[in-house]
Amino acid sequence: MADIWVMRHGAYEGHRPGYHAPYEATLTQEGRDQVRRSLPLPNGILAIVTSPVPRARQTATLVSHLTGLPIVATSGLLAEWRAPSIVLGRTAETYPPAYRAWRARRLANPSLRCEDGESLTDLHTRARHCAAFLRHTADRQGPLLAVSHAVLLGVLTHLQEGPAAFTTANTPWHFTERRPLPAHQQVAPDLQRPDQ
């Protein structure tokens, strides 16, 4: 079983606590410096996979450039939680009433969506599929580095908690921090390939 490491992207334009970044937010110079300081990678990593979101893709591209490792896949399974459009570019003090109401009810009804956002159930299901994708890719490519986003990484590393992992997996992920993906999180039991 090949090792899988997960890494958060570097600092991006507009970041501040509680901020819901727009899709197109890109790395800052500090973010690029964080990527450089995050090296060397753990021994044995042979390939990189990444979220398509620009700040993650730029992080993965810089890691690839600095290490010579190939980026073997870009997958929407690794994208950040899809926040509703009404909160993009906003922080907690400016969240609209509809979003505040959703936040108050989301754990009681994890399938509930706020407008065009992803529900907790949607995110958890995607994280389970992401775990299977990472395992399958590592089986083909060898030990991997997966570059993604704080919320998705929190859910991915706490799959056993179900949709509530969105709010309970709140251990901070610092920019460019790496953590090994626990083996028991790599494939959800009902998503294992039939030949396993």
Score class of each variant (00 low, 15 high):
Ala2Tyr: 05
Asp3Cys: 06
Asp3Ala: 15
Ile4His: 10
Arg8Asn: 06
His9Trp: 06
Tyr12Leu: 08
Gly14Tyr: 05
Gly18Cys: 09
Gly18Asp: 07
His20Gly: 02
Gln29Met: 08
Gln29Arg: 14
Arg32Thr: 04
Arg32Cys: 01
Leu39Ala: 06
Pro40Met: 05
Pro40His: 10
Leu41Glu: 00
Pro42Cys: 07
Gly44Phe: 00
Leu46Arg: 15
Ala47Ile: 09
Ile48His: 04
Arg57Gly: 01
Thr59Gly: 02
Thr59Asn: 02
Ala60Ser: 06
Thr61Trp: 00
His65Ala: 15
His65Tyr: 13
Gly68Met: 05
Leu69Cys: 07
Pro70Trp: 02
Pro70Glu: 00
Val72Glu: 00
Ala73Pro: 01
Thr74His: 12
Thr74Val: 15
Leu78Asn: 10
Ala79Arg: 13
Ala79Pro: 09
Glu80Trp: 00
Ala83Cys: 13
Ala83Ser: 14
Pro84Leu: 13
Ser85Phe: 03
Val87Gly: 07
Arg90His: 14
Thr91Leu: 07
Thr91Gly: 12
Pro97Gln: 12
Ala98Cys: 10
Ala98Leu: 12
Tyr99Ile: 14
Trp102Asp: 09
Arg103Ala: 12
Ala104Gln: 15
Arg105Trp: 07
Asn109Gln: 14
Pro110Asp: 06
Cys114Gly: 06
Glu115Asp: 14
Leu120Tyr: 09
Thr121Val: 09
Leu123Gln: 04
Leu123Met: 13
His124Glu: 03
Thr125Cys: 08
Thr125Phe: 07
Ala127Ile: 09
Cys130Met: 07
Ala132Glu: 07
Ala132Tyr: 02
Thr137Ile: 08
Asp139Pro: 00
Arg140Gln: 14
Gly142Phe: 04
Pro143Thr: 09
Pro143Met: 13
Ala146Val: 12
Ser148Ile: 11
Ser148Thr: 10
Leu152Pro: 02
Leu152Gln: 10
Val155Cys: 01
Val155Tyr: 00
Leu156Met: 07
Thr157Phe: 02
His158Phe: 01
Gln160Ser: 12
Ala165Arg: 11
Thr167Phe: 05
Thr168Leu: 14
Pro172Gln: 08
Pro172Ile: 06
His174Pro: 00
Phe175Trp: 08
Thr176Lys: 06
Thr176Asn: 05
Glu177Trp: 09
Glu177Asp: 11
Arg178Asp: 00
Arg178Ile: 14
Pro182Tyr: 04
Ala183Ser: 11
Gln185Lys: 10
Gln185Ile: 08
Gln186Arg: 15
Asp190Val: 02
Gln196Cys: 13
